[in-house]
């Protein structure tokens, strides 16, 4: 069996989705943890320092490349699977099985993923592109190091426009539902079938899919309402 056969089979493609999904879940933890520094109430010093560490250190930069590879893999593979799976029915049903057999968000991973993708584009335009390419105003940390003042950029982005905040909240809700299915599904795809572990992973998955997107959603909200100083 060739590697191509492995990764083009229906199970192999799912494996790609599951593995990249789990990597992205790990990324979300790091991202959420780092961004939570905005609530240090120190005018963004801790946040900017953390962001600087991530941008300046070689390890996160290498991981960042991996992250992009996985995001692209997850997107491309996901869209391909969605298109392929949709083509298998032929004549559609007149009456749909609908929510009697499965959760709406389990059946809507393609749609939810696409919303997240659109959100991601906007999000990158807001922060990642300025930070990497077009430039961000500098600020000096208490220890004298010059860093990008991403904190001020965030404040500016979220305080000016309620539309942006709403867009971010929609992105986070989509992420929540995407995770509600994706978290446990990824582990099933990896072959976890033991009932105890499945139950545990399901519980963790639901918890994760509420807590992490909620933390993200609270960032623009708390900046908009001026809860962050």
């Amino acid at each position: 069996m060739t590697w191509k056969q492995v990764f083009t089979s229906s199970v192999g493609q799912k494996l790609t989705m599951g593995l990249s999904g789990i990597f992205l879940i790990l990324f979300l933890i790091v991202h959420a943890g780092l961004n939570a520094c905005i609530w240090a109430m120190d005018g963004g010093v801790m946040f900017n320092r953390a962001a600087h560490f991530m941008g300046d250190n070689v390890v996160p930069r290498v991981l960042e490349i991996g992250l992009f590879v996985f995001i692209l893999l997850h997107i491309i593979q996901g869209l391909m699977l969605e298109a392929s799976n949709r083509s298998k029915r032929g004549t559609p049903y007149a009456v749909s099985y609908g929510n009697r057999g499965s959760k709406w968000y389990s059946r809507s991973m393609g749609l939810l993923g696409t919303i997240i993708l659109l959100f991601l584009v906007v999000h990158m335009v807001h922060f990642w592109i300025p930070s990497r390419f077009t430039g961000v105003a500098e600020t000096t940390l208490p220890n004298g190091v010059e860093v990008h003042d991403l904190f001020s950029l965030m404040m500016a982005t979220f305080q000016e426009n309620i539309g942006v905040v709403i867009l971010y909240v929609i992105g986070c809700i989509s992420l929540a539902y995407h995770l509600a299915h994706g978290f446990q599904s990824a582990f099933r795809t990896m072959g976890v079938h033991n009932k105890r572990y499945v139950a545990m992973l399901k519980a963790i998955g639901y918890g994760f899919s509420v807590i992490v997107p909620l933390a993200f959603a609270m960032m623009p909200i708390s900046m908009y309402f001026g809860w962050v100083k």
């Binding site: 229906s10 499965s102 389990s106 059946r107 299915h181 599904s185 990896m190 079938h193």
Partner: peptide, 28 residues
Amino acid sequence: FGGCTNTGACEATCPKGISLSNIARLNK
């Protein structure tokens, strides 16, 4: 046939109650 996305509709409709955990076992 299409690929599995673990929605669970199959298990819900199966007349013999075949469990979704079989799919996870197959994946493994």
